[in-house]
């Protein structure tokens, strides 16, 4: 790790902070102003997208963040990564406070935390070749260049199940699943510790989803990655997660081990969410319908 900056208060942190935790988020708030007015904007209200959220993620584990649209899960993910500036609260990465750090101070930390996006059609620059897209983080961070860069990128492509000859192709030549592999190769290029995946499989065909989920699991093991997996599909979230946090209206309403949250939910909203998930088994679905509607 090559984090520079003041080291003096790090020593105090190391003593109080549990070493197995990679990320600790406390009372995180992200409000967006609602403005009205033609010439002079007045702030008339606030959207409390993330409204006092605390959670932690241990090294090597997967935290599933599940919620419906508007629950604030994507805003939370982006605020944790400091892609959005938090309104208040604390985000500690390896014990170090990163909330409110300047862009310049964040830059070396960006190597440590990467993001995989939902839409593999929108998240890759259509004018760049695959090799450039995947190699860009390495080039920008000064890790590799020239022939070494090309070699490194080809290794990355192989690691995510693509071929070396894909290096010179453009994104439009690939299917959705392959594009998501390119996005994943770019995310792991700098050997990050934390990857936030925001709906990484929801835009993909059913037969491709399992491939990407399995790829993410393989990479987690090989590269000792820690994941925050954001999705609305609680079935997928349960499959990939060690722990699940359920978000509703900007708050985490329930958090716990994945099986416990799904099998014995405590919160009323979690129960409602689970009850709405279709069960792909006609007999089960029929008996559940009878249970819900006794008529």
């Amino acid at each position: 790790m090559s984090v520079d900056g003041p080291k003096s208060d790090d020593i105090g942190d190391i003593q109080t902070h549990r070493p197995e935790l990679l990320l600790e988020v406390a009372d995180l708030v992200k409000h967006f102003p609602v403005k009205r007015g033609l010439v002079f904007d007045r702030e008339v209200d606030q959207v409390r997208a993330v409204d006092g959220v605390s959670f932690s993620v241990a090294r090597g584990e997967t935290l599933g963040l599940v919620g419906e649209s508007g629950s604030g899960k994507s805003t939370l993910a982006r605020t944790v990564l400091q892609l959005l500036e938090p309104s208040s609260g604390s985000v500690r990465f390896e014990g170090r406070e990163i909330a409110g750090l300047s862009r310049r101070a964040m830059r070396p930390l960006r190597r440590e935390m990467q993001m995989v996006f939902q839409d593999p059609y929108a998240s890759l620059n259509p004018r760049k070749r695959v090799g450039q897209i995947v190699g860009e983080p390495l080039l920008l961070q000064g890790v590799a260049r020239g022939a070494a860069l090309r070699r490194e990128v080809q290794e990355l492509l192989a690691r995510v199940g693509l071929a070396a000859e894909h290096y010179d192709r453009f994104p439009h030549e690939f299917s959705g699943g392959q594009r998501q592999r390119i996005g994943i190769a770019r995310a792991i290029a700098l050997r990050p510790k934390l990857i936030v995946a925001d709906e990484p499989v929801s835009a993909l065909d059913v037969s491709i989803r399992a491939q990407i989920v399995n790829l993410l699991a393989d990479l987690q093991e090989e590269l000792e990655l820690t994941y925050i997996f954001v999705a609305h599909d609680i079935g997928i979230v349960r499959h990939v997660s060690d722990r699940i946090a359920v978000m509703h209206e900007g708050k985490i309403v329930e958090e716990g081990p994945a099986d416990q949250v799904c099998d014995q939910p405590r919160d009323a909203y979690t129960k409602q969410l689970l009850a709405a998930v279709p069960i792909p088994d006609p007999r089960e679905a029929r008996s559940r319908r009878r249970a819900v509607r006794p008529s």
Binding site: V206, S207, I234, G235, R238, H239, C262, L274, P280
Partner: peptide, 10 residues
């Protein structure tokens, strides 16, 4: 294959 790759919460 479609049936086998489904995730089930139950």
């Amino acid at each position: 294959g479609l049936l086998g790759s489904l995730t089930r919460i139950d």
